[in-house]
Amino acid sequence: MMYRIPVNDWADFAVMFCRTNFRPFFRWFSGYIEGFVGSLEALLAFIPVLLFIIIIALLAWRFSGRGLALFAIVGSLLILSMGLWEQTMLTVALILTATFISLLIGIPLGILASRSEPAWKILRPILDIMQTMPIFVYLLPALMLFGIGLAPAVIATVVFASPPAIRLTNLGIRQVPQEVMEAALAFGSTPMQILTRVQLPLALPSILAGVNQCIMLSLSMVVISAMIGAGGLGGVVYRAISRVEIGSGFEGGIGVVVIAIILDRITQSLGRGPVGKEQG
């Protein structure tokens, strides 16, 4: 019989090794993320509901148009009347945190990938793994390391949602026309000046498309996050499924859809037009 390569033992060992040796670090990190999501949620919950709806409607109107504003009002009132407001705020806080961390990691890595061919060669397969590895495979180890709650949910979401931010930042910068780059160089710009004055502004539509993708993918993780105790709208859906309460499952699902549509349309219109300035 062929020799069996003990991949399973290695993985077990790696997880156990991290668990026994770096436990304080993971706990600290976990507490940090819980704190972050918690205070964001508290902030969102602190705003009076009606004021919150007005703000969302105004944002939708400003960035997208009257249609979305109307949708935002109706959708929010629907969520409110289903009694899911608190859960919705927790989900929004969770998504925003995951997106924020994804961008914090993704944009610098995207910039790095666009400037260095070796970096991009190393990153590419890693991104492929992050996007295709079945989520439950790393969900369980995350659970063991970070403990039940928000932290493993956020980590899993970041793993799943940050690749498009990296890819699209890299792509956007690489798409800056050669002659424009030459012009910037010919005037004696430093690499930093080229990055901030030429590459990033011109890559902005692409980067914003990455932000949009990032948010959408985070949303698709909501229910899975709930399985490891993240709560929120995902929790509503998860509980409903396990008790075979079809009706309340739909309620939670509709809540997710409403958030998705509002966030998607707003972030999409951010990326429209070269840099969001008035151009002909």
Partner: peptide, 21 residues
């Protein structure tokens, strides 16, 4: 070289290469 490009010589391109933003 950078200082030299800044002060001594500048360049005009076939496809203009203006900064679109």
């Amino acid at each position: 070289l950078r200082a030299f490009r800044q002060k001594k010589m500048s360049m005009v391109f076939q496809r203009f290469a203006l900064f679109p933003h």
